[in-house]
Amino acid sequence: STVLPPSLPPYFIRGSIIQLADGELKRVEDLKTEDFIQSAEISSELKIDSSTVERIERSHTSPNFAVVQFSVGEHRTQVSVEVLLEYPFFVFGQGWSSCCPDRTTQLLELPCTKLSVGDVCISLTLKNLK
């Protein structure tokens, strides 16, 4: 399945204020892996899944987009996402990463590393899904 998220949301801009599940406020660039894990533990609806990057390709439809293929969760479900090259994903133990970190840093001022095959990203699922 291919999902097309909205272009580039404002909350990825450096300095954006993010509220964790326990109410604590943090800047987007200061978020740590534990912030997501602890927030998901508190949440009654959401749980964190590990999504491993399996392939990264240039989009056939637009030069500004990439298609990232993930292997999601324990069932290793294959999911492809078409995103802007600068769209950041949060990699476990590493932080924000994108297909084109230079563009991410330039456009959002968000410190970012290069998203690579094998990286394990944080993604969400609904807790009641079986």
């Binding site: 990825f12 993010i18 999911v79 944080i122 609904l126």
Partner: peptide
Amino acid sequence: VPVFPWHSLVPFLAPTQSD
């Protein structure tokens, strides 16, 4: 100043059904 919930930063990559 807008405040965004933590989960808006995380993509929903879950399949609708996993069985």
